[in-house]
Nucleic acid binder design. Structure first.
Lengths: 334, 334
DNA sequence: TTGTGCTATGGTAACGATACCATGTTAACG
DNA sequence: CGTTAACATGGTATCGTTACCATAGCACAA
């Protein structure tokens, strides 16, 4: 495989001149440029980015660390990231942590070894320490979707508390008094905030006695299981609140398997919408997060940091959620 | 940021010894190993993979070039790839070509510059030439999902022709005589094969006069549009065959918007299933491809090539599709 | 004329690791 | 006791590129 030196020899110039032509940096006469370009074409020369990055200390690579690309929410985020990054010549490495502390650690180490310029991180088990370590190693970080307390980091997320509050308020306004929350993990900030929103709405309506919260992973299996537990209540809840899309789908399956009609017998509201490309008849009343834009914004913020254009202080961008009312929330109770 | 030399100095050894400890290659006494490890920990040393790869000529990086990660089929493939690759210490770079020739070219060039060890490619506009160029540049290639004629390359895909044939046969057995195919792009091998399967079933049943094929991109919008065209037929078709998941969802929306009941008035069958995590009540009768395994197998094949374990000749692995009969195909016609 | 600044190009070192070769120490064996 | 082999460590060159500094021609202003 030809190197920059081979090209230089063939074009009758110094390697550095070839470099200047390739990168369009510094001066190069029209004629030299042409000679170099033909030499490149004739040899089928492909620059070696490893060498370039080693010398220049920039890899033009970002990393996106999410929990699971299989979740459409993260899929959309990833397209937002990828599109934004690739438009300015950056590549993106994706990592799925599956909410595992071990995987997260392993990937972060790997990414640092790869000298990525920046990391977009949906923290699963990140601590202030681990974030600081990343920054010490010269990589910029932007937190996505979730908070990590007591650190100075840029963050892009949605207002989970307000979104959940609105959903529950909507149910209460329709006459529901017995609403069960199917939460995510106890330690995950989005889950915590959504439950907080639920609590605020419940408390405001003077229903503190009717507060019922279950916790579990953000999975369909958990949604199913927690719903089955909720269905042992007497009297039955009149509405369920799923803290994310998978939980709610699991809940729906549990209700179906129990022969319970939605929304006639039990109403369901949920965090996270499903992309319209995947659903024929959207059914869920949801608090929809602008996932694509989250990825986009976070990437823009990160790129600004890298180019030194961003202001010194950390930014916390909080995007609004959109409440979309559909059938699953039903009508006003009789 | 500390380098291997800093570690070496602090541990009182030569850099190469540190290297041996890190990579667990060659000999190192228990005691030296310990000294090196503490030095690494104290300095917060992180090896620089760029330098390592530049010297060793291996990046331990694969690339997955797909058309759109937003399609659950490719999402599943990507998890198959990622899980298999990361289990043996490989990182994966994802690229979305969106079926664009320009993007595909741009990404392939970029990936070669990055010196990826291997590329898993869902060819959108790849030619034998472009594949050979990749191989000349020292990267291995495995084609995924689609064929490129007249090249020697490893391939992992499903039997599109047989899958489509089975779906159409199923409709014919239930009495359908007027089945419209909503195809993908004319040039894409999967689309071509699926239409071929459709044609074979139609011909076998002596229905050549009732052959109706439309072509368009693999998108929901196209599925919608083509269905609207199909609905202008007189008499109306009794069944539709969508060549991929997005097309079929678009078709369903068109039928819904036209006030046509599925399957009562028109039956629908489709290629590609949706993951059960995303659907409460699976409805489509489909030819399901084992997407995750496709990613897995392709990655294994690629890794075998890289380690030189694979036999010389190219392999073509063809996985079977599974016909899953659900409601959308309806009952036997009256 | 001298000085200044733009254009165009090149030489040398360095980025941070490992490949390759060399060397010394120790244990084991006939 | 000498030879062999496994163990343990190090020196030097090199991967392919760019940073940094240097040089030289030329136009133009003072």
């Amino acid at each position: 495989m030809p190197t920059i030196n081979d090209v230089a020899k063939r074009a009758g110039v110094a390697p550095i001149t070839v470099s200047r032509v390739i990168n369009d940096s510094g001066y190069a006469s029209q004629e030299t440029r042409k000679r170099v370009e033909t030499a490149i074409a004739e040899l089928g020369y492909v620059p070696n980015v490893l060498a370039r990055s080693l010398r220049s200390k920039r890899t033009n690579t970002l990393a996106l660390v999410i929990t699971d690309i299989t979740n459409p929410f993260f899929t959309s985020i990833s397209r937002g990231v990828e599109d934004t990054a690739s438009a300015v010549g950056y590549t993106t490495i994706y990592c799925n942590t599956d909410e595992s502390e071990k995987k997260e650690k392993k990937y972060l180490q790997l990414l640092l070894e790869k000298q990525v310029d920046g990391i977009l991180l949906v923290p699963a088990h990140s601590t202030p320490d681990s974030l600081e370590f990343i920054q010490e190693q010269g990589a910029s970080v932007v937190l996505l979707d979730r908070k990590v307390p007591n650190v100075e980091v840029d963050t892009v997320r949605c207002d989970s508390e307000a979104g959940a509050y609105s959903l529950i308020k909507l149910l209460i306004d329709r006459g529901h008094r017995n609403i069960v929350a199917l939460g995510g993990p106890r330690e995950t900030s989005t889950s915590v905030d959504r439950i907080a929103g639920y609590r605020r709405a419940i408390a405001e309506a003077g229903l503190a006695d009717h507060e019922h919260v279950y916790y579990g992973p953000f999975t369909q299996a958990s949604g199913y299981e927690l719903t089955m537990k909720a269905l042992t209540h007497n009297p039955l809840p009149t509405a369920l609140f799923g803290a994310n899309n998978f939980i709610s789908i699991g809940a729906m399956k549990a209700l179906r398997d129990s022969g319970i009609q939605v929304p006639e017998e039990i109403a369901v509201v949920s965090f996270d919408d499903l992309p319209s490309t995947l659903v024929v008849d959207p059914f869920f009343t949801v608090a929809a997060q602008p996932a694509y834009q989250m990825g986009q914004k976070a990437t823009e913020l990160l790129l600004n940091r890298l180019s030194g254009e961003a202001p010194q202080e950390c930014q916390e961008i909080i995007l609004p959620v959109e409440i979309i009312v559909r059938q699953s929330s039903g009508n006003v109770l009789a």
